[in-house]
């Protein structure tokens, strides 16, 4: 990304387009996770426009990516504040993770996912155990302490479980 930015700053229009295509897709994904289905596209677009306007003159503290992320974060923060003014309910940026809308997800996927989870819970029980603790609201540090594993092991087990889950779902033709 940083190389693309250098080229774009030097006047390469194709590089600039590539940056903003990439950013827009990613901003949409990140904004959707924060604000849900409602205004995420608008937020992503606004953030992209701001980045486009300012990136040539801005001096990045860390790098372009971190700065661009900061722009998106600010847009989402403003959106949250506006919502708070309307609803009178105070929500911080970090608490802005709403429950995703799963009403439109097909029942086939859900059925296959449950099958795969049951299968995985038998063959790779550690993963199920960690997920259960995570559902109970324990943080990574608390889970690691509880099951006496290092944080590194925790991520390894999660990722192995994820791979097996993905493999199982792929076997059923759903991912």
């Amino acid at each position: 990304m940083e190389k693309l930015v250098e080229r774009a700053k030097a006047g390469d229009e194709r590089a600039e387009k590539e940056i903003f295509d990439k950013l827009f897709v990613r901003f949409k994904y990140l904004a959707k996770r924060r604000v849900g289905n409602e205004d995420y596209e608008d937020l992503a677009q606004e953030a992209c426009m701001t980045v486009l306007e300012k990136y040539k003159t801005e001096e990045f503290t860390v790098n372009f990516t971190a700065w661009a992320y900061g722009v998106l974060k600010m847009k989402i923060g403003n959106w949250i504040q506006a919502r708070q003014r309307l609803s009178g309910k105070k929500v911080s940026f970090e608490e802005a993770y709403g429950a995703p809308d799963i009403s439109e997800i097909g029942s086939d996927l859900k059925r296959h996912l449950i099958d795969c989870i049951r299968q995985l819970a038998r063959s790779y029980n550690r993963y199920a155990r960690l997920i259960n603790l995570s559902y109970q609201g324990y943080s990574t540090g608390e889970i690691c302490e509880r099951v006496d594993i290092s944080a590194n092991n925790y991520y390894v087990i999660l990722n192995r479980g994820r791979s097996l889950l993905k493999e199982c779902l792929a076997g059923k033709g759903v991912v």
């Binding site: 799963i102 996927l109 996912l113 449950i114 819970a121 038998r122 029980n125 109970q136 509880r146 099951v147």
Partner: peptide, 29 residues
């Protein structure tokens, strides 16, 4: 895995499927 992650995070049946796996979670290894 976006849709799968959504289900993992928000679907009660999916969470229940994990819950069936192990009930004793309090013991240290």
């Amino acid at each position: 895995m976006e849709v799968v992650s959504d289900l993992l995070n928000a679907d009660a049946d999916v969470k229940y499927a994990f819950g069936e796996a192990k009930t004793d979670l309090s013991l240290k290894t």
